[in-house]
Design a protein around this nucleic acid. Structure first.
Ligand code: SF4
Ligand code: SF4
Lengths: 132, 132
DNA sequence: TAAAATACGACTGTATTAGTCCTGTTTTAT
DNA sequence: ATAAAACAGGACTAATACAGTCGTATTTTA
């Protein structure tokens, strides 16, 4: 199936929300309550985005998150690859070795590789700001 | 995650194989053995493709499958929608009602819908013959 | 009439995603 | 000081979807 994960959707929603509240520090709880997103899950996504230098965090009782980049400078592909466990449309294109037992006689690898490129290009072309 | 199902890959491999063997009737076993695809699983995929008028079947001891269409006349999208349970990249775009609890406040539906169109256009543009 | 093929529903196993829980650290207001 | 409220993060559980198996029936031919 070709389907985005909730994590990716939640990232988009959260980044959009933070970008709108401008300078102000935004709490995870503000976002999770407004959009009915599970707090703990969203929190971990934000932590991940911090590690990837998209957000910065402030701890403590008045803490929260703030944007480090403009949404127009974040390709959707980045978000996608940060958040998803794999970015390949088929098993054999993962970074680690393939263990597909068809592989040796597989006749469709090359065309699929091209399609993967097309898909990725869409993700690389679109910026997070396109979702605001 | 954005990933094709094995069913779709097996369909492509099988259709390619049948198209190469021209007129001859092809048994499921021929294909499953050659490409290490589980026989029973492939059999059900072929049954599905028969229902969708891509293949015709002959029962009995010399039975098997034969192509009804040219591969260049079968969009990948058709195969995709026959074989996958859902064709939408997010939950709320399924045919049946959405039960995403973000939905009411969701800010990203429209851009995602456009992206879905782009993805589908790739699938509609490519023909199964492009994988031969 | 036995063998070998398709037909098909029900079932099981497995992988991934989604969500929860628990404990820790940091900062601030009181 | 210290309690409250925020981030930090690992471990766990639950839900879902995919992949594969099994059993039985039907069809056809040698
Ligand atoms: S079937 Fe072919 S394309 Fe698919 S995972 Fe295996 S080797 Fe790759
Ligand atoms: S979060 Fe928004 S885009 Fe995603 S499924 Fe829910 S309503 Fe649709």
């Amino acid at each position: 199936m070709v389907k985005f994960s909730k994590k990716l959707e939640y990232s988009l929603i959260a980044l959009r929300h933070i970008s709108i509240s401008e300078d102000k520090i935004t709490r995870v709880r503000d976002i999770s309550e407004k959009y009915n997103i599970p707090h703990d899950l969203l929190a971990k996504i934000m932590q991940k985005l911090k590690k990837e230098c998209i957000l910065e965090s402030v701890q403590g009782i008045n803490g929260g998150y703030r944007l480090l980049k403009k949404l127009s400078e974040i390709p959707l592909f980045d978000l996608y690859s940060f958040v998803e466990s794999s970015t390949s449309i088929v098993e054999c294109m993962h970074d680690d070795a393939s263990d597909c037992y068809v592989s040796d006689n597989c006749t469709i690898k090359d065309p699929l590789a091209k399609m993967q490129d097309e898909f990725e290009n869409i993700l690389k072309t679109k910026m997070v700001s396109d979702f605001v």
